[in-house]
Design a protein around this nucleic acid. Structure first.
Lengths: 336, 336
DNA sequence: TTACTACACTAAAACGTTTTACTAATATGA
DNA sequence: TCATATTAGTAAAACGTTTTAGTGTAGTAA
């Protein structure tokens, strides 16, 4: 019952040719290598009839490449990452690449392990939303001339390709929107990570207030500890809103913070309306269906995925090492 | 700059022992194979110092196994699947297994391709939410004695392990809840797929109405074409609610149908309240944060993942082929 | 006729492991 | 003392490919 998988050897025997010949045919090198059309057809028929699939592991061992792209994200169950993953998967699939993914939980240790693991599996290229403190690991990949594209998070100390949105601009736009609505006490709820794209959100918020001659009140900025339990975050938020009743607008710097924020408001019985506006980072059904609808800074998921995969494919298909490229897209403020 | 990865040969040379010895040490067979502790320590030190990682591809080629579990889902960007994926990933990781995943879009062709691809990569085990029409492919895996666990969807014609919830019971409970609230015109919004777990939801709904001496009106059952664009679904739903104003409760058979449904209601300006109740399948932030909060049938994600992975690991660690097992869990009706 | 070239194909090495079947030396038992 | 076990290792085959460097034959040019 357990039929051992066919090998190229079986096909060769059946067709009365050498292994080499079969391999040439398999790899489309038959004409170039002067294999007669008669033989080509005979072998191809056998391959098709027997449903022979070359063993990719053996192939990888010999060639050193695997047709696999490693995708390392913080958490695949975050809708932003799973949406990107799905889009990347689709696009890679069309080019005959498979994706192998893992979540790091923003843990440098796990990231190191993952990179090692992917290396030992001859993964051809890496798409990474990097955790802080993993600079050397990524530099290691670059030293080996592996194609790497970072996304969402950027590590400024590395010379590496990147796709992401301009978070300064995005949060500036959001804050500006509030200011134009004559909001004067704008809160920012963010996380306490010292990574570029988080810092930028903070800077954009501050700069907008400055440009509109507002006074920025540091008490209205809440930096939630990264990785904190949802309940604790909700408690912190309630505290903030209770203590500073003058707050008339809130910008949430991530989608899950916005969800915690809306939950907090709901539990407090505080409504979102003209007197209390909210903007969430990353759009989603939750915000569209909320009553009232919640404005959001949408990231162009499709375009992000497209750019990532095309950078990767370009690097994969070019023999030389290409210049690194930084693609900075614009977030869209969706006013609801 | 490009440092070629170390091989076992390099380590052997450096330690002045044979490749075999290094391999034994690497695989914890050193004592059993009578390697002296002096040698063991010397070699282990070199391995650690040089940061040598065995090439998994070569290992797979030789052993026929890969420490990789293939996860095949309909769509990784569906929150249900991405949540399960994340949980499975975590648990597998602890047992030193990696997950490689792909989405099928419920396409038998893509599924076939994926299984072939995974096979050719020596994937050790398969976790599959199967598309219809893929019975033979899965049977093929079973014939090769590969560990397989299906989840979410079941294929009754196969003798294969499965983890899922009792959908008949779940939708019965939901419908019963409506009936106890004296709802008389209960709609069901489902998809037109002829797969067990979808049919069961329909049957549970019908049975509950029957048991409570209600009359089931087939006009209140909307079967949305599978894979239909969201906009079209929303239009269909509006039509339904407009035509049958007597409908006083709706059970949505999937999470995305519920989202379309709530969107339709919102666009129509129709509110969910005591006169018009709604229950969604699969819980989520959208439903918790909706005004009013939406009741939902929650699946025990954590337990589903736990059961799946433990079934897989049991099969992987046992030499004989184990009896197949069907784990049917209960969905929880969360009344809001 | 000789020397090339083109054609049609193949033998064997290599990729980096694991594992089987050895060897050689020393220790043990009778 | 001889036979046998035990200890401490190693050589080489095998996994299934790709690829380099051939081989042998037929045709062509001089």
């Amino acid at each position: 019952m357990t039929t051992k998988a066919l090998s190229i050897k079986d096909i060769a025997k059946k067709a009365n040719v050498s292994i080499t010949t079969v391999s040439f045919i398999l790899n489309g090198k038959a004409v170039e290598k002067n294999i007669s059309t008669a033989v080509i057809e005979r072998v191809e028929k056998i391959i098709k009839d027997d449903g022979f699939k070359p063993n990719q592991v053996a192939r990888s061992l010999r060639t050193g490449s695997s047709k696999i792209i490693g995708l390392i994200v913080e958490d695949i169950s975050n809708p932003f990452f799973s949406a990107i993953a799905r889009l990347i998967e689709d696009k890679a699939y069309k080019k005959d690449y498979k994706i192998i993914y893992s979540s790091t939980e923003n843990h440098p240790g796990k990231m190191k392990e993952l990179i090692n693991l992917f290396k030992s599996r001859q993964v051809d290229a890496y798409i990474i939303s990097p955790a802080l403190g993993t600079e050397q690991d990524i530099q290691g990949l670059l030293d080996e001339h592996k194609p790497v594209v970072l996304f969402d998070r950027f590590l400024p100390s590395l010379d590496v390709s990147y796709v992401g949105i301009d978070h300064f601009e995005a949060s500036y736009k959001a804050t500006e929107h509030f200011l134009k609505l004559k909001k004067r006490n704008i809160a920012l709820v963010t996380i306490d990570l010292d990574v570029e794209q988080i810092v930028n959100r903070y800077d954009g918020y501050k700069q907008a207030i400055l440009d509109y001659n507002g006074t920025q009140n540091e008490a209205f900025v809440l930096k939630v500890p990264f990785g904190q339990e949802k309940e604790a975050t909700i408690a912190q938020l309630k505290e903030l809103f209770k203590q500073y009743t003058e707050i008339d607008a809130v910008l949430f710097a991530t989608n899950y913070l916005a969800i915690s924020g809306l939950t907090a408001l709901k539990e407090m019985g505080k409504v979102v309306d003209a007197n209390f506006s909210v903007i969430a980072y990353d759009d989603g059904d939750v915000f569209k269906l909320h009553t009232p609808q919640i404005s959001a800074l949408g990231q162009p998921l499709e375009e992000i995925a497209e750019r990532i995969i095309s950078l990767i494919l370009m690097q994969l298909s070019s023999k030389e090492v290409l210049e690194t490229e930084r693609v900075i897209l614009s977030g869209e403020l969706i006013v609801r």
